[in-house]
Design a protein around this nucleic acid. Structure first.
Lengths: 238, 238
DNA sequence: ACCTGAACACCGTTCAAGT
DNA sequence: ACCTGAACACCGTTCAAGT
């Protein structure tokens, strides 16, 4: 394959922010969070570690850029004729799937609180909350609750996947946790023991969606009375 | 203060797992997650780094023990004559306060999924769910949703506190975020802009509790019909 | 402007050697 | 049994020097 001699010859692609970030994602996917090293990344790009610093400020910017790259490609576009509930579920599943494909994202997502990738999700959840006719004063709470729930599941999924890396199978892993739960002290862990069976046969995805539905129920149930109809009023403890 | 000469003299307290862990908590509180170093910890305990390894396996066990120590002292005991909702709120606030006092806990909590400190919280939330007469098949989902929400807020709070460390004031920080939101593209971030004002005057604690109440509403509203009365059935997208 | 790679100031962890 | 601290194999980041 001869390259046109008129163009400046390039033995290899020149370094660029884009190439660095996509190599970082690849490294994170294959070697995990601890595998992303400037030295390993430099070797992957056939250069020295210092070269990367010309394009990127440091490790945390690199991680942020990697998360951004993954999130923007995975989050689904708007489906115009979906109900608000369906749209929110699709959005949530987008985040869920991104973390299933790239477990390291789950750990890092919470670290970018009011920043780019999750802010876009927040915005789109919020719009659906508005479509649901939640009163203005309760919209922030509703969207925040959904976001926090999604981020919480994200973190736990990431942790589970990491713990699962040595175990062979996903169901085998759930079985071992369920078995551990079933052996807990019956007095101290009566509830946990009682749901151990449900843990064994549950589907992570379905469980995640069930939680979303639960919160959506709360949002629509309390529509129009967000301050007035608290189940029990918060008062002095005595 | 003379020590009895019959006992073996101790120039300093002997090393122990307990002393190491409490020194680690102190170090984490003052220097943050990055400040916990075996060398720094050893200096704090007036010994060499190798000594610590006689009592603790490694860094991750040390972090886990530190979290455990903080969580067990902060989570409130059972208040026997509280409503289930009040008990769950008290529990959730216990976790919230632990993270406010020790921000590094928030980042690490999710990493211990089915493990000791959060499992105790899960158990006690679950018991209250049972008191609420949620049908058995829906109990796991309800308790899990509350846990995920709590862990999600925990992670975000930890991230916020870290970002806040250089800023002077908490309200000043919220103001700067709100100001940033207000300057976003009106087309792309219409919702986010519209709630920027609520962010500025909101109280983290109240907001957190409002989210708990929202989920509790969902749990009680759907009591007895967890599978049947989904707002809109999940079906094929087309 | 962009790349190179040695060098600096750190890490967690191990382990022979001491008491 | 328990502690010591030098040593090993790493890190992220910087920076003079090259092209």
């Amino acid at each position: 394959m001869a390259t046109s001699p008129s163009r400046p010859e390039r033995r290899q692609e020149p370094l660029s922010r884009e190439r660095i970030v996509s190599a970082a994602v690849e490294l994170l996917d294959t070697a995990g969070e601890g595998g992303l090293t400037f030295r390993a990344l430099a070797k992957h790009l056939a250069t020295g570690p210092g070269a990367i610093y010309w394009h990127i400020t440091g490790r945390s910017e690199l991680l942020g850029a990697a998360i951004n790259a993954v999130m923007t490609t995975t989050i689904p576009g708007d489906d115009t004729d979906a109900t608000p509930q369906e749209a929110i579920r699709a959005l949530a599943l987008g985040v869920f799937d991104a973390i299933e494909a790239h477990p390291w994202v789950g750990t890092q997502l919470a670290r970018t609180p009011s920043q780019s990738p999750m802010l876009r999700v927040f915005e789109r959840i919020g719009r659906q909350i508005q479509v649901l006719r939640v009163p203005a004063a309760a919209q922030f709470t509703a969207a925040s609750a959904l976001m926090s729930y999604i981020l919480g599941v994200a973190g736990q999924n990431a942790a589970n996947t990491r713990a699962l890396q040595r175990d062979t199978d996903r169901t085998e892993f759930l079985d071992s946790v369920a078995a551990a739960w079933a052996e807990l002290d019956p007095d101290e862990y009566a509830f946990t023991r009682s749901v151990a069976g449900q843990l064994r046969k549950h589907d992570d995805r379905e469980e995640f969606l069930a939680g979303i539905d639960l919160i959506l129920s709360g949002i629509t149930a309390r529509r129009g009375c967000h301050a007035a109809c608290t189940p029990t009023t918060r008062g002095p403890d005595s």
